[in-house]
Write a protein that binds this DNA or RNA. Structure first.
Length: 612
RNA sequence: GCGGCUGUAGCUCAAUUGGAUAGAGCACAAGCCUACGAAGCUUGGGGUUGCAGGUUCGAGUCCUGCCAGCCGCGCCA
């Protein structure tokens, strides 16, 4: 089948040219076909001559001449050499038409690119008894989009919500709740969150402060005050530890209470996922507790392989010459989250047959994952049954900061629970849609309340998600409600708007579907041509976005496409085109643009309403 | 102290992984709805890409050294 990707076709052609003109060896390298930003430089350009010239110590322009002469461009288009040795290519109308035919099919030219093994996407990662705040948005939607991109390319994906449902923090919360004599049955997640924070504060009582107060000879009142605090903290810790023991030994009442906590938490998480349009259900939930029986065997394996050693009572794995080892068992015999992560990798490789595990987790855990990955490599748990190696990747993202440029923690960010942010976004979206629906000349006039609510929700959610997804994940960003819920400019709603406009245009045309889809492509105006090139580059963008884990590439491509369409829409009348052939051709181009926009929005987990 | 990340227009961010004159949005200024949805389009001003060197035909991107901010650094997750 013919390709719909100009870049791909040009790469093929130039590889042949380079092989014939220079050497087979030179042809193995990247032919450096790039999209030209500037129409004056053609549609695409080949920059290979410059680097080849250096390698063979030749004159770049001469090398470019030789390559071009040997390159079978034939029907693809015409080329000329410019500047120090760039080869600028202008694609032929007929070639573009053939490619458009290929894109204008059910799969929109996005061909399956399956992988031999599954991909595990570790996303969301909430903790039991903690409310989701804006920081959790990133892991959840980034992970969801990365999963969608791989799924679209026909790859098997496991979404794994590595829920924090095991260990001391849970026990602390449970013990705090019991001491407050709260009835677990009637608790909301907000209640749990309070208990969790209260428990944390208790445990965090200032030991160092007490020491300092004593040595500095502070007043006895102050010391006693601190001591009292300390005693109650110790008592709370003791209680939490005994609760943990009961939980770990399977005490029926404790386990039941624990399950209650998980249920309350998950109900909230899944509701937020639903509102966010994130594909996450209970079946994707495999919390830390899932690995509890695998921790001791994990540690034993490291001992058996001679990779673990005792150090100050704890069991550690030394990694190369690194100063800080990875602790896999505490001096008191307990396990840590590193142990759980090691067990999880083992499970995912051995049981889920993962060829890649992508951890969509906060950048602050870089060192942790580096150490865990290294330990996995040492013990060889990254090897699959067929001998290939599972790739371990950490898709690290930056923190959401408050206006004080400090991480937006639960304490200071209490007003910004994720739910509050989404509610606000949906409210503003709905208000906006409602406002427009009351204007006399508005296409949404007469829209029912029910439809308005649905559209408002789609617009609000798209705004929030796009704001987060359109940037480089590694960077921190300051949380700004107005920026995240903007509907103008480079935003999600801008793309939705382009889509809705086309939907409206198509419904106004009285042309039969078959008449549109059977019409001949025609694009003479520069705006039409730019639109065509934007459409054709889309499939390759999806593939690279998936392979690089870069949702921002999808956002950028969609913005470019919507922008090209808006320009085209302004410059080229569709329904009132000068002749019938042009009218149908423009309708066909519009329809194809609409489908690509909808596809892109869907990959970002956003709706594409026909009216807004 | 050691390690990591970041530094681009007044603000928020891009830059096809080394390509041509560094691009968008917001804000600001001027235009465009009797041809399709103005959540839009067109035009304009605004830059020593933190600083100093280096590598080469070419550097925001790679290397070295500084500066600033943030993050991490043994038994929490």
């Amino acid at each position: 089948m013919a390709s719909c990707d100009p870049k791909f076709d040009l790469e093929q052609a130039f590889r042949k040219g380079i092989a014939a003109a220079i050497s087979e060896d030179a042809a193995k390298a990247d032919p450096q076909i790039k999209f030209s930003g500037d129409p004056a430089h053609g549609d695409y350009q080949c920059n290979a001559a410059l680097s080849i010239a250096r390698a063979i110590k030749g004159n770049p322009r001469d090398v470019a001449e030789k390559i071009l002469a040997a390159t079978p461009l034939s029907a693809l288009g015409t080329a000329e050499i410019a500047g120090p040795g760039f080869i600028n290519i202008k694609l032929a109308q007929s070639a573009l038409q053939t490619m458009l035919d290929r894109v204008d099919m059910d799969d929109l030219g996005i061909e399956p690119a399956p992988l031999p093994h599954a991909i595990v996407v570790d996303l969301c990662g909430v903790n039991v008894a903690k409310q989701m705040h804006v920081g959790h948005l990133r892991s959840t939607i980034l992970g969801d989009v990365v999963a969608r991109l791989h799924e679209r390319l026909g790859r098997k994906v496991f979404r794994e919500n590595h829920l924090g449902d095991w260990g001391l923090p849970i026990a602390m919360t449970m013990s705090a709740l019991r001491r407050q004599k709260r009835d677990l049955k009637s608790l909301t997640l907000a209640d749990l969150n309070h208990a969790y924070r209260a428990a944390q504060l208790e445990a965090a009582t200032d030991t160092a402060g007490l020491e300092a107060a004593r040595t500095r000879g502070a007043g006895s009142h102050r010391v006693i005050e601190l001591e009292t605090q300390q005693e109650s903290a110790i008592a709370a810790e003791q209680d939490a530890k005994s609760t943990l023991l009961k939980l770990q030994s399977g005490d029926v009442a404790t386990v039941a209470a624990w399950q209650q906590l998980i249920d309350v938490t998950m109900a909230d998480v899944l509701e937020i996922a639903r509102v966010l349009g994130v594909r996450l259900t209970n079946e994707h939930s495999r919390g830390e507790s899932f690995y509890r029986d695998k921790l001791a065997p994990t540690v034993q394996s490291f001992i058996d392989h001679g990779l673990a050693q005792e150090d100050q009572g704890a069991l550690i794995v030394r990694i190369a010459e690194q100063e800080r080892p990875l602790i896999i068992r505490k001096a008191d015999g307990g396990f840590l989250y590193a142990t759980t992560d090691l067990a999880a990798v083992h499970y995912r490789v051995a049981q889920l047959h993962a060829g890649e595990i992508i951890y969509v987790v906060d950048a602050r855990q870089r060192d942790h994952f580096r150490d865990v990955f290294n330990a996995i490599h040492l013990i060889g748990w990254n090897k699959l049954a067929d001998g290939t190696q599972c790739k371990l990747s950490h898709l690290a993202f930056g923190s959401v900061l408050g206006t004080d440029k400090k991480p937006l923690k639960t304490r200071s960010g209490e007003l910004f629970t994720l739910k509050a942010l989404l509610d606000e976004a949906i409210q503003r979206g709905t208000d906006q849609v409602k406002l427009r629906a009351t204007q006399t000349d508005s296409p949404t006039q007469g829209t029912t309340e029910h439809e308005i609510a649905a559209i408002g929700r789609a617009v609000g959610i798209a705004a929030v998600k796009y704001a987060d997804l359109s940037g480089d994940p590694i960077k921190d960003y300051v949380f700004d409600l107005d920026r995240m819920i903007a509907f103008e400019g480079d935003t999600g709603p801008y793309i939705q708007y382009a889509h809705a406009r086309i939907a409206s245009l198509i419904s106004k045309s009285d042309a039969a579907d078959s008449a549109i889809s059977n019409s001949a492509w025609k694009f003479d105006h520069p705006a039409e041509r730019a639109l065509v090139l934007a459409i054709l580059s889309f499939p390759a963008t999806i593939k690279s976005a998936a392979d690089l884990g870069s949702p921002q590439r999808v956002c950028a491509a969609l913005h470019e496409l919507a922008n090209c369409y808006a320009t085209f829409y302004q410059a080229c009348p569709v329904l009132k085109a000068p002749d019938e052939a042009t009218r149908l051709a423009r309708l066909r181009l519009s329809l194809l643009t609409k489908r690509v926009l909808a596809q892109g929005l869907s990959l970002l987990g956003m709706d594409s309403p026909n009216r807004m």
